[in-house]
Amino acid sequence: MSVIIILILFSILIAGGFLIAFLWAVKSGQMDDKYTPSVRILFDNDEETKINKENNNSNKNVSK
């Protein structure tokens, strides 16, 4: 039965790891602004857009 004690200690250790991850997230300010990051991720980098455009153009050229 004593194996259960080890299991419990492990489970608490893992849960504690998640707790620490959560506390770290709060500390690093991830809970301060819950909206802006959701928008920020949608912005393209201009370099990429340019390449895409060029690709599109070249594709069109090929199809012609």
Binding site: G16, F18, L19, V26, K27, M31
Partner: peptide, 17 residues
């Protein structure tokens, strides 16, 4: 505000376990 989040995190963790 952050303090409250800390507290909820810890209380939730303890409550569950």
């Amino acid at each position: 505000n952050r303090k409250l989040y800390y507290k909820i995190g810890i209380a939730g963790f303890s409550f569950g376990n």
